[in-house]
Design a protein around this nucleic acid. Sequence first.
DNA 1: CACAATCCATGAACCTGGTTCACAAACCGT
DNA 2: ACGGTTTGTGAACCAGGTTCATGGATTGTG
Lengths: 240, 240
Amino acid sequence: MGTEDRKQRERQAREQLFIDKAHELIRTDGLLALQMSKLAAACEYATGTLYQHFASKEDLLAAVATRTTIQHAERFRRLPELPLGTRSQMLAIVLTDLDFAAANPDHYRLMQYLLTEAVWAQISQERREALLTAAQPISDAVSGVVERARENGDLPPPKEISAEEMGLGPWALNLGMQNLANARGLLEAYDIGQPLDHLIRHFHALMTGWRWEPRVDPDEPSVVRAETERVRAVLQETFQ
Amino acid sequence: MGTEDRKQRERQAREQLFIDKAHELIRTDGLLALQMSKLAAACEYATGTLYQHFASKEDLLAAVATRTTIQHAERFRRLPELPLGTRSQMLAIVLTDLDFAAANPDHYRLMQYLLTEAVWAQISQERREALLTAAQPISDAVSGVVERARENGDLPPPKEISAEEMGLGPWALNLGMQNLANARGLLEAYDIGQPLDHLIRHFHALMTGWRWEPRVDPDEPSVVRAETERVRAVLQETFQ
DNA sequence: CACAATCCATGAACCTGGTTCACAAACCGT
DNA sequence: ACGGTTTGTGAACCAGGTTCATGGATTGTG
């Protein structure tokens, strides 16, 4: 059934168009300003057509987040081949995440919004799973680094903590810092600038606290900076 | 002007009623279900009256969060008098926070919602400042502990990092973990249970990484548990 | 090719719920 | 008691997400 296939493809293409356009509109006008009718108009379709693809506005947003997450996850696929020790690979993950957040300032905000219980509940089971699945490679990358570190002795043998649970630390630290950095006026009120620079130092403290070798002292700014530069250079080189 | 005062007081009392009732409704029916008209009805006032106190629904929510934050902040006032070392005091802050989050499951969710850029922008300057001011004692408590730790040598002298920026680490870690714990289905998807237990271990890793004495090895579950018990007992004793 | 039968895009109507505002009641000073 | 002002009221308003009756396009059949 060739015509069936074509229709399917066209449908897929249209969904992609909707998602792309929505992403674009969010980028330019902000999450707040996104309206289903405006989006439909921008795509030159009727409002109702949107609802043949997305059960609700939240569903659409989840789809946008999923697409971005897939792109993000792509960056982690080749992580293990980096010529870096496991600890530096972990730093590479954090830096990649930071760069991604800088390049996609809306993504974390969108994720924060979607993961809010009130909003999360509005998203269809299907889309929720798709979003979680899209993020899986990121989690896998983290767990993978932890496992390799344990295998080759960079990290002491685990005591009542799985690789996933180990990865939870930097994940939470990252997420929390992004949240704080995104809340306009919050950190400024407490006289804190450059939260993301501090994130890296706290990250090293966390890793060093777990005795992840080779240790980097968070309290030596020059050492921290040098390590950041080194890993950044390798990332640059490998991913062009 | 005695009658002016009385009116002022009555107005204040009514605002309090609105806030209390809103909090109660959120607790029972969830953030999602809160409606201005229902809230007004529950308070036996007209919908319009609500808007003499709050510029918008978000404003009202910010007021609820502010009140809860003030209660929360209250717990930190007497922190310095705890018969504990600085590092254990820091743990006491985290534990107090954890207990508070457990007792007020909506509060973190509400805060997460309010700090979302899209929502934050809807809140009046005034309320935003009030919320930040309410949280100030918490930040002060953290900074205070850091400063005392530095003074008496529990923590090495700072290198390019203020007390506030030092406190950013545990804050972000805490916040991020609460976020993750609140996103129903997220951690389950990655086979992670009890995220908040792990929070404590990661917290110790972070502190130990910064060489905060006396060090606690995050990788010794029994030691971590014992320290948690000890601090919990002191908290219990001091605050009855 | 003509004619049903089916599908599906359409966009106006619907509905929910936050916000406003014309009105009236309460309150105040004289 | 009476004009003026302040404040509470809730029905009307409005925005924007969602639905659905309609009709045009597409597919299958004689």
